[in-house]
Amino acid sequence: MHIQDTHWSTASTASVAATASAVAPAGGAMSTVAGNGRGEGTRPGRTTPLRVDAQRNLEHVLRAAREVFGELGYGAPMEDVARRARVGVGTVYRRFPSKDVLVRRIAEEETSRLTDQARAALGQEDEPWSALSRFLRTSVASGAGRLLPPRVLRVGVAEERSGGAGQTAAARLPQQRPQPGGGELGFVPDGAADDDAGVAELLEVVGRLVERARAAGELRPDVSVSDVLLVIATAAPSLPDAAQQAAASARLLDILLEGLRSRSA
């Protein structure tokens, strides 16, 4: 599992727009001027649907990015993503003007996926321990932990230190400010407010799972939300053989769940 901050902050809106203009084909049917921080924007007043081949390339790039970043961490180069997607690196940059934009897109989707999985566990399991263990098993099996944004773990730790359970996470999210020298790593990311809301939502729902299991006496009293997220991040090893990976993940998760459970349960 690679949890790292490399290439995490995105460029400013102006920087992204300039890069997009440089790589977009003149007069093409697909506009990549970033209007939402994800490299998906269109020119003002125009909504142009992707051509079939462009949509297919986008899906290939996103799938390849999840695989590459899941295996190598977010520090993996864009060239690796392009090779895995079997497209030219220019095709990747036409959809995602910088690597930071692609990283943010993948991390945002994985955060949303984890939140949905936590909600499903809350809604479909009456027993607190069953709900928590279901969430962990589903999340680990999906491989989402390998793409967990590093800031989620940092915020989870901050939550526990401040005594919160996720309900007010947005107010305590780390603030990102411009840094001297500018450049791709020197600006507040476009769309950061959306990311903060997504992280806060994940922490709130997982916090409910943790509190329920703790109140029922089934979870060790010292286990925190950040501990649960760390289990997800570490119990999804990346192995070359899919069957070995599934077996290793299941075995490791069984051991970790036993460590989380209250001795009196």
Rank of each mutant, 00 (worst) to 15 (best):
106 I>K: 04
179 Q>M: 11
96 F>A: 01
88 G>V: 03
143 G>V: 15
164 G>K: 02
122 L>H: 02
141 A>Y: 06
178 P>E: 09
80 D>S: 15
75 G>L: 11
78 M>P: 07
115 T>P: 03
167 Q>H: 04
117 Q>L: 15
99 K>E: 03
116 D>Y: 13
102 L>P: 03
169 A>T: 09
181 G>L: 08
176 Q>I: 15
133 S>C: 08
80 D>Q: 14
165 A>H: 06
95 R>D: 07
125 E>N: 05
101 V>Q: 01
90 G>P: 03
167 Q>R: 06
125 E>L: 02
167 Q>Y: 00
155 V>G: 04
125 E>F: 01
154 R>C: 00
156 G>Q: 02
118 A>R: 01
122 L>G: 03
114 L>T: 01
145 G>T: 02
157 V>W: 08
157 V>C: 08
91 T>I: 14
175 Q>A: 12
105 R>W: 13
117 Q>C: 05
136 L>R: 06
143 G>R: 09
86 R>V: 15
138 T>N: 11
152 V>A: 12
184 E>G: 06
169 A>V: 05
96 F>G: 00
127 E>V: 11
134 R>V: 07
177 R>K: 10
108 E>H: 13
178 P>D: 11
110 E>V: 13
173 L>K: 00
82 A>M: 06
101 V>W: 01
173 L>W: 04
94 R>N: 03
138 T>D: 14
79 E>G: 13
106 I>R: 00
121 A>Y: 01
168 T>V: 10
147 L>A: 13
104 R>W: 12
152 V>N: 04
137 R>F: 05
105 R>Q: 13
157 V>T: 14
